[in-house]
Amino acid sequence: MSEDERYAVRCRATYAQANTEVVLSHVSALPFTVAPLWGFDLSEVHLTREDGRAGRKERGVRRHCGKLLAGDVIETNGLLVMSPVRASLEATMLGSAEAGLVVVNHFLHRGDFDLDTLRGRYDDTMDRWPNSLPTDLVLRLANPLVESVAESRTEYFCFQRGLPRPIAQYEVREGGVVVAHLDFAFPDLGFWIEFDGRVKYERYLRPGETAADAVLREKRRQDMVAELTGWRCLRITWADLADPDALERRIRRLIDSIAAERSRRRAS
């Protein structure tokens, strides 16, 4: 099993052995709502008591206390777990803002809730919870157009490094018809970012395609977009996100290069 799968098994076992009425909450609710666990500490199982008594922490289990409102708890596969709205807000208070943004964007893109619903639940009783400062940031950055963990991390990287906020899933049109969606576009700066992961070239192969065919198809798509927009493409990978200093230098060099080229054209 993967680390995420092992964590889900531990959560289920801990829930089954609880002596009081509890709900799987925080990051421990995420496996059962089919949400990503990227960036979270999986060393503890999180439960919320339904009896209102004080929480405690012992032997890899953290029991929380918190007011439960109608709709906060759902039942799935014989387990009581926090709803996507409640679990995503709790997650933003448990891990980093980046990890919280990954979860919130996942649920928003999937359509489990909208931003107004999320903000409403936060303002209802959770805005004064401990460690809620990252939640305010996540709510400002959340974007239902962002489709994956990698894209959420890329958008957070741009914020953290003081880069302009890109437009996610930018539509490129030819003759009024949408011919491409770009992961992130910077129209004013004249470039776009595409995230290259294995999923793009393996899971989404068309019938009869090889990985090499998919690479060539993506190259033709990039050339078409460049011809229609006049922009440059910057391709990044997980390795780039693991070295943010180097990635920032690449992006800023590209911005400077495009600005210099535009200046030369105006001068000629």
Rank of each mutant, 00 (worst) to 15 (best):
D4E: 08
Y7C: 04
R10N: 07
T14E: 10
Y15V: 06
Q17G: 08
N19L: 15
E21I: 06
V23H: 05
L24M: 03
S25M: 05
H26T: 03
L30H: 01
L42C: 09
E44I: 01
L47D: 00
D51L: 13
D51Y: 12
G52K: 14
G52M: 12
R53E: 14
G55K: 03
K57S: 13
K57P: 00
R59S: 05
G60Y: 09
G60N: 07
G60A: 07
H64A: 09
H64N: 07
K67I: 12
I74T: 01
T76P: 06
L79N: 07
L80T: 04
A87L: 02
L94G: 00
L94P: 01
L94Q: 01
E98L: 09
A99Y: 05
N105K: 09
H106M: 05
D112S: 15
L115E: 14
T117H: 05
G120H: 12
W129F: 13
N131W: 03
T135H: 07
L137M: 14
V138S: 02
A142G: 03
A142T: 05
N143T: 02
V149Q: 04
A150G: 15
R153I: 01
T154W: 04
F157D: 10
C158E: 04
Q160S: 15
G162I: 13
P166F: 10
G175C: 06
A180C: 05
L182S: 12
D188K: 14
F191D: 01
I193E: 04
R198Y: 09
V199M: 13
K200A: 12
L205I: 05
L205Y: 10
E209T: 09
T210M: 02
A211C: 13
Q222V: 10
A226F: 00
W231Q: 08
L234S: 10
R235V: 12
R250P: 11
I251W: 03
R252Y: 09
R253K: 14
I255W: 00
A260C: 02
E261S: 10
R265W: 05
R266Y: 07
S268A: 14
